[in-house]
Amino acid sequence: METGRRATLTPEMFEPVGMDAQEGERIAGPPSNFWRDAWRRLKRNKVALFGLVSIVFVIAAAYVGPLISGYGPYAQDLSVRLQGSSSEHWFGTDSFGRDLFTRVWQGTQISLYIAFLAAFIDIAIGIGYGAISAYYGGWIDSVMQRIIEILVGIPNLVVVILVMIILQPGILTITFALVITGWVGMARLVRGQVMQLKEEEFFLAARSLGAGTGRLIWKHLIPNIVAIAIINLMFTIPNAIFFEAFLSFIGLGITVPQASLGSLVSDGYKFLQGDSYLLWFPAGVLCLLMISFNLLADGLRDALDPRMKK
């Protein structure tokens, strides 16, 4: 009977489409499109672009600045102490006669180093933890989530301060203190993302169309996770810079004569009512970095995942 209704359809009218690998790619969509899309969206966002440009500028300055100033960051010269900006010393000199221009950029390097290091470790741990938790599910997920819930309940500032008192102050200690509580947020995000993806329709569709696990991870999970990782990175970095500055301010920062933006600000703060340029230059760079990272992060979030909130 069924053939009767479809009498007009004959097998000759059908041709095998042929499932070659290239077609499969097309179904998945070339991953580069995702980034190209994102970049296009980002380019439209003037504010975010400004953030990006100034970050690039600050990073470049941080590495070039100390080279072109002609002074070492630790070279003291008490005969020229506390001189304001001049053609000799572009940002002036501090109480040891050290060149502030050199020290600010050197400090920026250290601040950025701490921030990037902390952020990357956060992300590494966070992705690993979150992915494992979500991938295995079940009781493993339950246990791992309970652990996270407990960690979230710990006031991080307090933990960071306690760690700083116990360990020898220095760049690595600060990084460690930042990471201790920092990775939790990332882990939660990744887990949520993976869980969500597991239930997405396109994921199911891709799977039923014959995509293997490896390819699913590579084509679908990774780009999505990388997207949130990047967004999170952009939020984590200014946080880390801020935290490091805070620690320096309350006297738990890095060891002298090294300087970070935070320690320069806290040293400069003492000169607020007198040679206030010692505060303004590092504080300016600090604020510029913070603003730029936050603006870029906002823009990236819109560009990479317009649906994501918070």
Binding site: Q76, F96, I165, P169, T255, V256
Partner: peptide, 22 residues
């Protein structure tokens, strides 16, 4: 400590590390 470090490095030619503790 930064002053002492700089002075001793310059005047003695020594290598001086600073360790700060609370």
């Amino acid at each position: 400590s930064q002053f002492l470090q700089s002075q001793l490095q310059e005047n003695l030619g020594a290598k001086v590390n600073i360790v700060t503790k609370p």
